[in-house]
Simulated scan of single mutants.
Amino acid sequence: MKSDLLKYKHYFIAIAALLVGLYITDPLWISYNELTQTKVLNSVRANKLSTLLTQQTQLQQQLEHAKKLSENITPYMFNKTTESDFKLKAQQAVEQVLKQANCNLERVEWQGKVQLTPSLEQWLLTIRFNGAPLCLVTATKAIELLKPTVRFKEYTYNGRSFTGNPTENINADVDLIMWNNTHTSPEQKEQEQP
């Protein structure tokens, strides 16, 4: 029996070496590589942080400049903290324009919003109205001049047959984009109150 074991001792040594390699050396090598990668990533992060800390004053100046610029654009956005207040104010503005242009409003439909930043929303409003050609021209121009800003995304004007008669009826389907700043400062709230 001892001679049989000696006969296969090279096989046992090879199997032992494979087991050591498989269960000890290979996991240690993988762990070493992971630790090396972690060390490299941590050094990159440390370099970025040190760069940011050295540029802290410059970044603070840029932040102050951006805050001043954002104050300049607030008159061009609706500044309502609730969705219902925003929708009411925006819809009233559009309806007032159509009424002044002698257009007949048929449908108003809110399509939804896109959250641009934590406090800035972009809304899509679809309206359908009809009236004489002068109504369409007047309403289109008045909507473009609204403040807070309202922009056309898409529009379609159509009629049964247009012969150039100024009293003919033309239909309009319009998609409007508008922006709402849900975070208003106390000064903005005071300005909005009647």
Rank of each mutant, 00 (worst) to 15 (best):
K2D: 13
L6C: 09
K7G: 00
K9S: 13
I13T: 01
I15F: 08
L18S: 05
V20I: 00
Y23H: 08
L28F: 04
L28A: 12
W29E: 07
W29I: 06
S31K: 10
Y32V: 06
L35T: 15
T36S: 15
T38G: 03
V40Y: 11
V40C: 09
R45T: 07
A46T: 11
N47C: 14
L52E: 03
T54P: 02
Q55M: 00
Q58G: 11
Q58R: 08
H65W: 04
S70L: 11
E71A: 04
N72G: 15
T74W: 03
Y76I: 12
F78H: 14
K80P: 02
T81S: 02
F86G: 01
F86A: 01
K89T: 02
Q91N: 14
E95P: 07
N104H: 14
V108I: 15
V114K: 09
Q122K: 15
L125I: 06
T126G: 09
I127E: 01
R128M: 15
R128F: 12
V137G: 02
A139P: 09
E144F: 08
L145P: 09
L146Y: 00
K153Y: 03
T156Y: 04
N158Q: 07
G159N: 10
R160W: 06
S161A: 12
G164S: 11
N165K: 02
N165R: 02
N165W: 02
D173Q: 06
D173F: 08
L176G: 01
I177E: 15
W179H: 01
N180G: 06
N181P: 06
T182S: 03
H183Y: 15
T184R: 13
T184V: 11
P186K: 02
P186A: 04
Q188R: 12
